[in-house]
């Protein structure tokens, strides 16, 4: 244990030294190799100056380019290639994996579940986030309320899974319930349920966990957006005779529409990648499978890199529209700024 602590500490030092060495070293070298002295001819100074300004960006960017290339760009290409090969990546089998996926019941089930996640989680998170933001901004203890709702954001999916498994815990009908959901249900006079084994209900209960985590995110962003609405527009509407509810829907919501869309898409990305929650809660049993977990199973449990890669590509295709939209927005921002 002490050894590990020392190891960790020395590795932090090593990482810092490595980065320091690279950035300082490379820049020092550049300044050194292309140094200018007042004694040199004006021409030469100018040439070296401009050479230095042309090289320096690439020193700054080189590590990032390395990481982008090795961990994102190369994998995209390689994963696509693997998706066209068989389980060990040896024989080229065209799109056989894709047609397998198309016909596979579990894959379809997972895709269907992902679709359900895709609708439920962003909708509920954004909805609750907006509701809490609106309520909290009007009440004196709103700050505290926001902190508490926001707190789950900091918790890992696995931690959240433990927390919620405890909420859904089941004890036989003749015993005292220790899970709060079943305690509530029995208090209402109904028999306790093994929640995580009831198809559809169990998927929904898994989604609840992600909603619980993401609502804080939506709330913080939307709360900031709501505060950014010019107060005059609301006052003008009030003078025009609009009620609070009407003001909310016709004046405030349209002004934060873009932000809502951003929040929605950000949550969507999280949903598409969702893995930990399902893995920890049900591991895809009882019809709760999702693509993220299915991909993990095929790749690392079943050892079929072709099918695993195919599922990964399907997830990538699903996020592509968001990617394009983001790029468009970035382009527009570049243009104006």
């Amino acid at each position: 244990m002490i050894g590990q602590v020392l190891y960790a500490a020395s590795m932090v030092a090593f990482a810092v030294a490595l980065l320091f060495g690279y950035f300082w070293g490379a820049n020092w070298l550049l300044d050194r190799m292309l140094a200018t002295t007042p004694a040199m001819a004006g021409e030469a100074i100018t040439r070296r100056d401009s050479l230095r300004t042309r090289i320096r960006p690439w020193i700054f960017l080189a590590p990032t380019l390395f990481f982008l290339a090795v961990f994102l760009i190369y994998p995209i290409i390689e994963t696509f290639r693997l998706s066209l090969f068989d389980r060990l990546g040896q024989n080229f089998i065209w799109f056989a994996n894709y047609s397998w996926a198309w016909n596979d019941a579990t894959f379809r089930q997972s895709a269907f579940n992902n679709l359900a996640w895709l609708i439920v989680v962003p909708a509920l998170s954004t909805g609750f986030g907006l509701l809490i933001a609106v309520l909290a901004d009007r009440l004196w203890w709103g700050g505290l309320a926001k902190t508490l709702v926001f707190m789950p954001m900091a918790i890992s999916f696995v931690g959240a899974a433990v927390i919620w498994r405890f909420v859904y815990a089941y004890r036989g009908p003749d015993m005292a319930q220790i899970g709060i959901l079943n305690a509530f249900v029995t208090w209402l006079g109904y028999p306790p349920q093994v929640w995580l084994q009831i198809p559809l209900v169990n998927s929904f209960l898994l989604m609840v966990i992600l909603v619980w985590i993401q609502t804080g995110f939506a709330m913080v962003i939307l709360s900031a957006a709501l505060r950014g609405i010019p107060q005059e527009t609301i006052e003008a509407a009030r003078i025009d005779g609009a009620g609070e509810v009407r003001i909310f829907f016709t004046i405030m919501i349209p002004q934060i529409a873009t932000t809502i869309l951003v929040v929605w898409t950000t949550i969507t990305i999280h949903v598409l990648k969702v893995f930990d929650i399902v893995y920890a809660m049900t591991n895809g049993e009882n019809q709760t499978q999702v693509l993220g977990n299915l991909m993990y199973r095929w790749t690392f449990i079943a050892g079929d890199s072709g099918r695993g890669a195919t599922i990964a590509i399907v997830i990538l295709l699903a996020v592509t529209p968001i990617m394009i939209w983001n790029i468009r927005r970035a382009r527009a921002a570049e243009g104006t700024g």
Binding site: V70, F71, L72, Y74, P75, I76, E78, T79, L82, I269, L272, K273, F275, G292, M295, Y296, T299, S305, G308, A309, I311, A312, I313, I315, L316, V319, I322, M323, N326
Partner: peptide
């Protein structure tokens, strides 16, 4: 937005 899953096998 590239999903993590994509990078697992190749990396």
């Amino acid at each position: 937005v590239v999903p993590l899953q994509l990078a697992l096998i190749p990396v």
